[in-house]
């Protein structure tokens, strides 16, 4: 199976050492350009005026919050079913990054809601399901840390990650299933309802933040693997001197 080739930690580290700075640099350049265009060089909205610029941070944060959770669930499945050690490391590396982007999405959305809707927060389907996503991340992080402390296999955390996947379609379709204050989707596979001069920086921002997310996950995975190596080495050292 082809996935096995990347499940080898030594090979992963060789690739990640080269890939991490490249992905990070590309992400920084793309995000920087996207934010410059989005915040300064793109037009205001015909209804919302300047506050529409929050979109260039809010939408990528929402995408990475939910997309990050999907990758967390995939990695957890890889650990539960195939026992790939790298999948376990990946899941733990993804969780805090996804949680932070979910929080950025909630905070930027709240700040956007006040000038447009007239409120920081309502308990409608979209906002509530996004808050549940943040709680799922926090639950995963806490459970995984607790299981790790008792030298467990973190199976409970992996199962929690898989169970939480049910929230992803709820987030996506909340604005279609129920009446919500949050508007329907602007970006669809069939097209978008965003003017081209605003869509371009938004897509750049989506790509840029996604690369940054990948770079953060790669950095965290490398650090965790290095940490595990140091622990194993000092354990061997302690045994040898004992």
């Amino acid at each position: 199976m082809a996935v096995h080739r990347f499940a080898n930690p030594a090979r992963f580290l060789r690739i990640a050492r080269v890939a991490t700075p490249i992905v990070f640099a590309l992400g920084m350049i793309l995000t920087g350009a996207a934010l410059y265009i989005g915040l300064f060089a793109s037009p205001p909205d015909y209804q919302q005026g300047e506050s529409v610029r929050i979109m260039y941070v809010h939408v990528p944060a929402a995408w990475l919050g939910s997309g990050g959770y999907f990758s967390l669930a995939l990695a957890s499945a890889g650990w539960l079913i195939w026992r790939h050690p790298l999948a376990a490391v990946a899941a733990r590396a993804i969780a805090p990054a996804g949680a932070v982007f979910t929080a950025i999405c909630l905070i930027s959305g709240s700040l956007w809601g006040k000038p447009t809707w007239g409120t920081y927060w309502v308990w409608d389907g979209r906002l509530t399901s996004m808050l549940v996503l943040l709680f799922l991340y926090i639950g995963y992080i806490a459970l995984s840390a607790a299981e790790g402390e008792r030298a467990g296999e973190r199976k409970g955390a992996a199962i929690l990650a898989l169970v939480g996947v049910i929230n992803l379609p709820i987030i996506k379709y909340s604005v279609e299933w129920w009446n919500t204050l949050h508007q329907g989707p602007s970006l669809k596979l069939t097209g978008s309802s965003i003017a081209p001069e605003m869509l371009t920086p938004l897509l750049m921002s989506l790509a840029g933040f996604t690369l940054l997310f990948a770079a953060i996950v790669l950095m965290r995975m490398r650090a965790m693997l290095a940490e595990a190596r140091v622990e194993a080495r000092s354990r061997r050292l302690a045994e040898a001197t004992a």
Binding site: Y46, W117, G118, V122, L181, S186, S193, A195, E197, M198
Partner: peptide, 16 residues
């Protein structure tokens, strides 16, 4: 209480 709900369209003022 009155809340404003906007649609999913975003465009510059010149277009409208």
């Amino acid at each position: 209480t009155i809340l404003a709900k906007h649609d999913e369209k975003y465009m510059p003022p010149e277009v409208t």
